[in-house]
Structure formats: C-alpha cells, structure tokens
C-alpha cells in the first residue's frame, strides 16, 4: 500500500498532504514523519486533508501530536479540507473547533 502522505517545504512553509486512509496501519509511518517535521521547529505548517477518505482514532492521535508539537514550538498550523467521514470524526470529538475546520 502506498504511503498516504507527502511533505513539501516551500519557503518557510511545510505542507503535509494526507490521502486515502489514515488509520492504525498507516499512522505509525506518519508519526515518524511528524517527529521529523516538529524537530525542524517549522514556523508554518499546512495540513491538507481534502484527499483523506477515512480516519480512525490512531490517525486523529497522529494529527493531535503534530498540532501540539508545532504549537508548543511556537509555530502556526492550519488543518484544512476535512470532509465526509474524517470531518464527522473531528466533530464527534469536538476537535473541529480547536482545528478551525
């Protein structure tokens, strides 16, 4: 199964695009990438979820880790594009308000 994410660094911005299914099988690989992103202390991180079809609690945990890591290092993070099942999960967990979805 292809890795469902890619990372681009454009000027001062880090762009993370996540596709397909972010779940207990794919989240560990993303968590490793998140560690690398956070270690660079990025000033701006943008997460594009418009191609994300499914998420479970493991995927949510990975995104929370990214959010907290970037914010605690003083960076800004924007999570955008959530739709369908992933958006329903964020709303159920009341994270849509925190993430400004």
């Amino acid at each position: 199964m292809p890795v469902p994410f890619d990372v681009q660094h454009i000027n001062d911005e880090t762009r993370l695009t996540i596709r397909g299914s972010l779940d207990i099988n794919s989240a560990p690989a993303l968590a490793e990438e998140i560690d690398k992103i956070v270690a660079t202390r990025p000033t701006t991180v943008t997460v594009d979820l418009s191609s994300l079809d499914l998420i479970d609690s493991s995927g949510v945990a990975a995104l929370v880790k990214l959010y907290k890591g970037v914010r605690s290092a003083g960076g800004a993070i924007a999570i955008a594009g959530a739709r369908d099942q992933p958006l329903a999960i964020f709303k159920l967990l009341r994270m849509d308000k925190v993430f400004n979805l």
Binding site: M1, P2, P4, R19, G20, S21, S51, D53, L54
Partner: peptide, 8 residues
C-alpha cells in the same frame, strides 16, 4: 483513490 481499499 490511491488506496484500493479506501471505501467511499
């Protein structure tokens, strides 16, 4: 989608 098992 890129994941053949990703369900609609």
């Amino acid at each position: 989608t890129i994941d053949p098992l990703a369900h609609d």
